[in-house]
Computed example of a mutant assay.
Amino acid sequence: MIAALVSLHAAQDRDRPVLLVDLCGDLPAVFGAAETSSGLGEWLRSDLAPCSLERVLEELTPNLSLLPRGRGPLSARRADELVEWLGSGAVVVVDAGVLRTQGEGSDCGPDDELRWRLAAEADRSVLVTRACYLALRRTVSLSVRPSGVVLVAEAGRALTRSDCERAIGAPVLATVAVDPEIARAVDAGMLRTRVPRGAIKALGRLSEEL
């Protein structure tokens, strides 16, 4: 959700096009868009030229396009080509999902390898987390330090913003409250037209710095 909202805000305020890359497969549903039968996964396993990715992009708004995940595993075999293509001009936001490390129940798979590679290559990486001891504990093992943090605020949490910054070693760039308005917009398939104002305002600084 944070990746979707940051992308919407950036697309409204910038002359450059914005590209949202979905490594998890949830974003078509988040935007109320049709599920596609092909996407990044199919290209990564093919020998097609990088420019062929443009054919699977889905326009969400006049200035925002989505690169859908597609189906099957996300091979890291063509990571270098993907990184080069992503740096070709648009503002890029990548939803990398949960970054797993070895020892968390199972070895990292191809999807995890690609996610870590894109996080490491990014100009900025943002961790989205709650002010939860168990969530913060996991950040100690991360091999890539985030540039900043988006904190999802929940009532009743004992840990503060400062606690999170000290534990993660990165500044909190935005705090977003758990808001039923976001859930209603997603459930209705209207996130593109019914953009939650409170969340967009909270994420404004982050979007402006892309």
Rank of each mutant, 00 (worst) to 15 (best):
I2S: 12
I2V: 14
V6D: 00
S7C: 09
H9A: 14
A11L: 02
D13K: 05
R14P: 01
D15C: 04
D15F: 02
V18W: 06
L19G: 07
C24G: 15
G25W: 02
D26M: 03
A29M: 05
A29P: 04
F31P: 04
A33W: 03
T36E: 10
S38C: 07
G39E: 02
L40G: 05
G41P: 03
R45L: 12
R45I: 00
R45S: 15
D47G: 14
L48E: 03
P50T: 02
E54S: 06
E54K: 10
L57Y: 00
E58L: 14
P62T: 00
N63I: 02
N63L: 08
L64W: 06
S65N: 04
L66D: 00
L67C: 03
G70H: 03
P73C: 08
P73I: 00
R78S: 01
E81N: 07
E81S: 10
G87R: 14
G89N: 07
A90V: 03
A90Q: 11
V91L: 12
V91C: 13
V94Y: 09
D95N: 13
A96D: 12
L99A: 11
L99R: 09
T101M: 15
Q102G: 15
G103T: 01
S106H: 14
D111I: 04
D112R: 10
L114G: 03
R117I: 08
E121D: 12
E121K: 13
A122R: 10
L127G: 03
V128S: 03
R130F: 04
C132R: 10
C132Y: 05
R137W: 02
R138I: 04
S143A: 15
V144D: 14
V144L: 15
P146T: 11
A153N: 13
T160I: 12
V172G: 11
V172Y: 01
P180K: 12
P180H: 08
T193R: 14
V195K: 05
E208Y: 13
